[in-house]
Write a protein that binds this DNA or RNA. Structure first.
Lengths: 212, 212
DNA sequence: TTGATTTTGTACCGCGCCGCACGATATCCG
DNA sequence: CGGATATCGTGCGGCGCGGTACAAAATCAA
């Protein structure tokens, strides 16, 4: 993807900001306040950029929002993929994933942020078909990733043949969704962890064919 | 609560709007666009009221939003209570509740609205402690209502003694949450119904002690 | 009919919003 | 060193925002 080495600088005045860090800062601002609730001044303050630079780099506010959402989804999908591909039991993988999700949702200063996609993108999704499609795609990929891993567990005998990977995968996604909503509502991390543990038990222990 | 009969009209000029209908109209507007995304002009258009009347009747925009949220939560809680108190099996009650929730979430014109509390109130919850508390209270009551009904089912022998009402109740709430998120993301009603059916199966069929 | 009372409806104010024009600045190339 | 190039940063313009002042209108009590 990177075509030129870092040493070859482009022609004009060098930019005074790091586009990646700026996008991350914008993401965190949108994450808390949503698209409609965030002013450009707040983004300027968060990124340290000035408005014309923002505009030149990312387009208008909505375009910046969508780039931030894409970044968030890409990072989440990558973390999920890694966790599911790890050589651990299904229960351990799910426990790890939910644990990391909770840590992400309650991280940062102030009240818990929840999931960017669930908590604020859904708000915009109804009036914006593109954002709606992005949220839908993210949810679909979440379902499919869980379902594939669960199907693997079933094939390896860790789940009974009667288990339905599609249903259990959706249940994993539902757990993510409820964790996101509850985090945003102020539920403390410990309670979320307990809820996640219960979910893992229900998902993996439904019949518990291999008590190990 | 009502002190005077309807016939005794108050002193001055009669109001030209129905407060209840106006609050409902404001609720539907907020439901779609959220607090920050809704302008007072939109509320004026939706309610048919003019701005000073709005202000006199409900206070400022945030106060109106909170009244709308309280109304939504009260109506939801009442419907839930009725459905859970009905003399039906747990599975039938849950099926009915999820069915009604889906119908509510996809009702109205245009893209599905999802759940007011989940989709837009969570957005405001992080910056507004009062709204956060309202969302938290609603979620808690949802959990408790489900848990109580599941505990009853267990006591009546419809669930195995090993079932944990608290965990299963949270799972019911999680189903509501994921239905709300997915509806907002554009998932069609049929897919939501299938997901709800799978959830009922997992919740009630965990062990299936009474195959009836 | 007249005054008291409450709501209506228009019009407005100050403010913050988004997006951009434009000159200044810093770097690269020859 | 000088021209070319790309970004910086101030500043602003037009507009929509939330909230309110004020007079007209509609009702009740006397």
């Amino acid at each position: 993807m990177v075509q030129k080495p870092v040493s070859s600088r482009p022609r004009g005045r060098p930019r005074a900001y790091d586009p990646d860090a700026a996008l991350q800062a914008a993401l965190e601002t949108f994450w808390k306040r949503g698209l409609a609730g965030t002013s450009l001044d707040e983004i300027v303050a968060a990124t340290g950029m000035n408005r014309p630079s923002l505009y030149a780099a990312f387009g208008d506010k909505r375009a910046l929002y969508m780039k931030a959402l894409a970044r968030y989804q890409a990072a989440s999908a990558e973390a999920l993929r890694d966790a599911l591909a790890a050589d651990t039991s299904l229960a351990d993988a799910l426990t790890w994933i939910f644990e990391r999700a909770i840590a992400l949702y309650v991280s940062g200063e102030g009240p818990a942020r929840g999931c960017f996609s669930v908590s604020t993108a859904t708000t915009e999704a109804i009036e914006d078909p593109e954002i709606r499609q992005m949220v839908a795609d993210g949810t679909l990929r979440l379902d499919q990733a869980f379902e594939a891993r669960i199907g693997r567990a079933q094939a390896e005998g860790d789940l009974p043949a009667s288990a339905r990977p599609e249903a259990l995968g959706a249940l994993c996604s539902a757990t993510i969704h409820t964790l996101a909503v509850r985090a945003r509502a102020g539920t403390p991390a410990e309670a979320l962890q307990e809820l996640a543990a219960q979910a893992v038990e229900i998902i993996c222990g439904s019949g518990s064919p291999k008590p190990r």
